[in-house]
């Protein structure tokens, strides 16, 4: 596998907490970040709820793993795509999402948003342009 770089796309279509998929797929992303592949994350359908801001699990006793998404930038995972249609359908806008950011080393470490809101056509191109699609 030396030198080979593949386009990885993680497709997140499930809401957090109701099932464990969101948490455990985030663990895959973090481990995968060490493999020097080209990583993109896509949140669509109920997956957009994974990066909703203001998550508070105190009263439920569940583990709140949402702060981990903030660390993705530090792992060089900074291409995060969110379906506009999925947000619209759920009455959400980008302002409802956690402000996921990274520091751009090519631009004097300026802090930039990792999130890009995308259309269905752009999602189609993302999928077609991927070597590996991991779905959770």
């Amino acid at each position: 596998m030396a030198g080979e770089i593949k386009q990885f796309l993680y497709v997140n279509r499930k809401a957090p907490y109701g099932t464990v998929y969101a948490l455990e797929s985030l663990e895959v992303v973090l481990i995968g970040a060490a493999f020097d592949q080209d990583v993109r994350l896509l949140f669509m359908d109920d997956g957009v709820f994974q990066i909703k801001k203001d998550q508070n699990t105190e009263a439920s006793g569940l583990k709140n793993f949402s702060p981990t998404y903030n660390a993705l930038g530090d792992y060089d995972v900074n291409k995060i795509y969110v379906s506009k249609e999925s947000l619209d359908e759920r009455g959400l806008t980008q302002d409802d999402l956690m402000p996921l950011v990274y520091e751009d080393e090519d631009d004097d470490w300026a802090e930039k948003s990792s999130i890009k809101i995308v259309s269905a056509d752009e999602i189609r191109d993302l999928m077609e342009g991927s070597d590996v699609v991991l779905s959770f």
Binding site: M1, E4, K6, I31, G32, A34, F35, Q37, V132, L134
Partner: peptide
Amino acid sequence: GQLIEAAV
């Protein structure tokens, strides 16, 4: 890592 390695 075994999953990522398998995918690669």
